[in-house]
Design a protein around this nucleic acid. Sequence first.
RNA 1: GGCGGCAUAGCCAAGCGGUAAGGCAUGAGCCUGCAAAGCUUUGAUCCCCGGUUCGAAUCCGGGUGCCGCCUCCA
Length: 465
Amino acid sequence: MTLYDSVKKTKLPFEPLQEGKVSLYVCGPTVYDDAHLGHAKSALVFDLLRRVLEAEGYEVTFARNITDIDDKIINKARDLGISTNEIAERYTAAYHRDMASIGVRQPTLEPKATESIEPMCEMIQNLINKKHAYVISNGDIYFDTSSDKNYLSLSNRQSNENISRVERVSEKRSEADFALWKAVHDEGVAFDSPFGRGRPGWHLECSAMIERFVSPHVGDYAIDIHGGGADLLFPHHENEAAQTRCATNHELAKYWIHNGFVTIDGEKMSKSLGNSFFLKDALKAYDGEVLRFYLLSTHYRGDFNFNEEDLIASKRRLDRLYRLKKRLFGLTAEMIDTEFKRNLLQALGDDLNVSRTYALIDELINSANEALDQNPKDKTYRQILLSALQNIETILGFGGQNPFEYFQLGLDEATKTKIDTLITRRTEAKKAKDFPASDAIRDELTAMGIAIMDTANGTFWEIRD
RNA sequence: GGCGGCAUAGCCAAGCGGUAAGGCAUGAGCCUGCAAAGCUUUGAUCCCCGGUUCGAAUCCGGGUGCCGCCUCCA
């Protein structure tokens, strides 16, 4: 397969460090608030990449960290009058719950910053020994960016001299130098270390965890693929890369993958604009699977402008998949190697070309409906179709629900019973050729937001949006 | 100011030099007691200007317009 490397700025054939194995690390959330649609998009992109790599036969080590200690967490804990642990646990659980609802699988490794202090200290010591880091009088430890001749090569910047001069620390050797360790002298949240009480810098966490928990330690790179949102390229990934390069003498990642932003009305979500859209709120209005299908529907590198019209159009597209699944209902899956699967992997293997992938699915649905109209009883063909749907479910993570329940989500049993009763009465009226009566019942159902469809196998119903 | 991305039918969106995928919406037809679902069908020369080429949405140059990073950020 090929992947677009956002550092080399070109699509490259993917060749893993180790035969048949892939190490993939993605920057996860800082757990101080609920996940928004941007977190969802990023998680979905790398969940898809992981599934595709697995479908290609790779053994994938997929790591996604949890930053569970950070100024934002500390501030929130102070505002709410509870401990940082409570905040971190609350939002870690929320993150897991929200991601599960859109079909994001748990990573194989999920290291937490607070449980990785020791490897971080080891890396700091290493950097100090190699003169890549220095301690200032208050105990803070900084990375010396001038000591890394490749600094800024990742983000392709010329110099960092024109950055804004907020919070000037006079003892820093260069404005570009960043903290590896921040000494804590009061009663604040801190960890014991060989450098005294303090807290680790954010950038350090990823480098140290990768080195300790993820890297297979073969070849010129720590891991195969490092991913994250496009806004992390600088300074976060630049700094990670520098730390790893200087501490270990190998580069951090062979491939860098960055996903585009989710925007609302064309603008990036941010606290200051007040246009954050939390995933949990989206889930109140839309099914998690529909959100997955929608958020995954355009290429991961481009920005994604979230809006309800497109989401509804997207849902209608997914509906077609489930209507086909209805037509196959009752068959037991019996996996057949399909040409469809090869086509699917070929499209996805081209830097996750989901547009082409979705088009393949649409074409499958179209040709399947046509063929089933012609020859509804072709058992072999039906098995092939079912296998294809199974492939979609495994690789793309949607289409796995019971097709009847998919169209009936959110309705209580009493309503469902009422609908069934009305349909039974209508069927009787139809049998008696009492069409005014049967149409009146259909109007009643329509008013309830229910659409019905008569088929050879009986009358089915769906919720209309 | 520095760096980067994007601009394709009403909307979303592929395309990576050889004559514009797919979906949603719309109009028409088939099917249906009538519908729904399904099927068929309807529509763009690709932001503008110049260049390279037998040939460009695709390459080069110059514009215009959006967006992002450079501060915590998926």
